[in-house]
Design a protein around this nucleic acid. Structure first.
Lengths: 231, 231
DNA sequence: CGGTTTCTTGATCAACGTCAATATGAGTGG
DNA sequence: CCACTCATATTGACGTTGATCAAGAAACCG
């Protein structure tokens, strides 16, 4: 089996259950694409001609509203697909994909991914499951933003980030890629000012430590309390 | 071709492109289920054993958070599927499905729907498209709730409702099923008080008219202005 | 007709955004 | 290596949106 880009593609959830042959054939159709930190794989409203699998790095998907406000719809970790728009019936990307660190993706054109989905039911079912999970996550976040205080939303966001990309350190769990207060604000629907204040308070009370773009959760348990019962 | 429950099933987007035979076979596996106004087809956290197609009536999907706050994740119109949870890899329903008027649904068990999806690629691709559209909608609403004022969110919610279920009246477009201020509050992430005040103001300025659970948009254009550039 | 749900409206208040100023570090070119 | 610049972060003062609290009115229902 192939092992392109130093990444084990059998681990990719979308490909689970696909036999080696078919996987190799599918891979043959992909090309590799890189984006340095700060650049994008695609921008909001670009024609959605491709879909991608993140192989290395970290991406954020960002939607911008007419008045310039931005929202981070998802952080993408290696092994996850992104930019499905065309495959799923949209003609343009609903958001931009910005590399938070230097990143590498495998890129398919939407048409061949569609035919692969049609040819391999297991692939389509996997896609449905993944998409279902994403829909549930989006709805959960909707409920949070609609009903919960900023502090709690920030707590949840940090826990999600930690779950997706924990890097154990001496004194706690570090989030494994650079996250600005602005990023956190855009995932939680708050301003960077409020986020900054909240994090400062938490640093003060020993729940977390951090410096520029780095956040270490010293006390995930206490964060979970904050996230759940609003202690 | 079958025409069960007085509803033309060829119009259902999920079934588009499926041949008559297969459609009939699929329908044979469904059973009919009714829910009177106010009752539910299923509740949040129930085991997700079935998936459903709304044939008549109107449903709202509601998520409740631990502190009792509710959010309406979607209004379901006839012809739309709901309660896909199990098919999409979740074991329990992420929300309840409450009938806003007396309603009828066709019900499949999740296993047979899964095998139908596996057997008919066209079905799986349709499902992916529909789910993709839903994901985009959820993300749009997330962006709205995170960045926009309540007034604008209410305007958008009304326009969405009108689009999904407009009933032309003498003086404007009526929303074709009973919607309470509470419902609107739960779709927009506001309180019913705020919604009530906003609607009162709009009634005052002639943008809409309404009575108990009835809303008539007299001036959709002005609502659209409010929804877009915050005029 | 009494009870219940829905809706309205006022008064008050706090969460959080906005505005503003400053600090801190990281990268860059001279 | 240092000066400069830019992005990021901190912090305070203040204002506004919209929630909360409270009370009552109106419509519907058995």
């Amino acid at each position: 089996m192939d092992n392109r880009g130093g990444f084990d593609l059998r681990r990719v959830l979308l490909f689970r259950g696909l036999n080696g042959c078919d996987l190799t054939a599918l891979l043959a159709k992909a090309r590799q694409e890189a984006a340095v930190r700060g650049s994008t794989f695609f921008n909001e409203c670009d024609d959605a001609l491709h879909c991608r699998l993140l192989v290395a790095g970290r991406i954020k998907l960002v939607q911008t509203s007419t008045d310039g406000n931005q929202v981070v719809t998802r952080f993408v970790a290696p092994g996850e697909m992104f930019g499905w728009a065309q495959v799923l019936g949209a003609s343009v990307y609903p958001g931009s994909a910005e590399a938070m660190v230097d990143s590498v993706a495998l890129t398919w054109d939407a048409a061949s991914m569609r035919s692969a989905l049609a040819a391999h039911p297991v692939l389509a079912l996997n896609a449905l499951e993944l998409l279902g999970a994403r829909l549930r996550e989006a709805q959960d976040r909707l409920r949070e933003v609609a009903t919960e205080r900023v502090e709690r939303r920030v707590a949840r966001a940090l826990l999600r980030l930690a779950r997706q990309s924990a890097r154990p350190t001496g004194e706690g769990v570090e989030i494994g890629f650079p996250v600005t207060r602005q990023d956190l604000a855009e995932t939680t629907g708050a301003t960077l000012h409020t986020v900054s204040r909240i994090l400062a308070a938490w640093e003060h009370s020993g729940i977390l430590a951090g410096s520029r773009q780095r956040i270490v959760l010293l006390h995930p348990g206490r964060l979970e309390t904050l996230a759940e019962d609003g202690g």
